Computed example of a mutant assay.
Amino acid sequence: MKKIAFFDIDGTLTSEIDGSIPESAVYAIRAARANGNLMFINTGRCFQNVEQRFRDVGFDGFVCGCGTDIYCDGAEILHVAQTHETVMKLLLAAREWDIDILFESRKEVAFDLARPLRHPDARRQYEAFEERGYEMPEHLENPNFFCDKFVLWFEHPEQLAGFRTTSDRYFECIDRGGNFREFVPLGYSKATGLNYVLDYYRIDKKDAYAFGDSNNDLPMLTALTNSVAMGNASPATLFDKVSYVTEKASEDGIRLALEHFGFI
């Protein structure tokens, strides 16, 4: 019977130490595919930000943007975007509360640079995108600008609370730790994306497996009986919500789990 596995990227497919892709993970994913199984990325990243090095591993498809953009066998089968009007409400709220906001879509990422980025992690992310050669639009008021989802950095809790009086009408807020939050359209998650793919291929949930390491993986980890937390998962409470805890990503965690579940 064909099985399918869904992998988060950061801290799951990549090493928690340096962000590299362990060779053992590449080998195991390719071997699992060679055995007739389906391998999918299931990430909060939008498709444009799924770097070529991840695509080169070899996957049958991608669930991107926490279930808002899905690709199977090279074809896009679902895309859910926000309207420009909604994006402008979010932009004005971020400016009102002096928050660093990063809009994400399947084609681009864009910071609001109307004023200098405040949070050091936001500045580091901007610099990382520059190093990758990403073209980031700066004129966000352009009527053709939209997003699929977004993330933000704040300095004080009251900033987040104030911003959410606007965002909660449209988005779910996911706590990613510290002063960083991820926002996904209401009704969408890594679990809804996973279910969409299972319906597409007519695969039963008992033959599906999810791999993750953080809070935004929780919907897909709890949606399946077969769920895997990486040994480096944070918060540690994830360990109590999965069926199997493997080693850290940097310590052959993916290979060991795929062996454990009979993929290879």
Rank of each mutant, 00 (worst) to 15 (best):
L92E: 14
F146W: 12
F146H: 13
N179W: 02
K107Q: 11
L91Y: 09
R164G: 02
F146M: 00
C147P: 00
F180A: 03
V87G: 03
L78Y: 12
S189M: 11
M88K: 03
S167Q: 01
N179V: 02
P157E: 11
R176N: 15
V151L: 12
E138K: 14
A128D: 13
C147M: 15
F180D: 05
G177H: 13
S189D: 11
N142V: 00
T165K: 13
G178L: 11
G162R: 02
T166R: 01
G187E: 06
L140F: 01
L140E: 06
W153E: 00
S105V: 07
E138D: 08
T166A: 06
F146A: 10
L91M: 13
E141N: 11
S167H: 02
K89R: 15
Q159L: 08
R123D: 07
R118L: 09
G177K: 14
E108T: 15
M88S: 04
E85W: 05
Y134I: 07
L117M: 09
E138F: 07
A94R: 05
L140M: 08
P116E: 07
F154E: 03
R95F: 03
D100T: 04
P185M: 13
Q125T: 12
L117D: 10
F103K: 01
F145P: 08
R124P: 00
N179A: 03
F146G: 04
W153N: 01
D112Y: 07
Q159A: 08
A122D: 02
R115S: 10
F183E: 07
Q82G: 04
E127I: 03
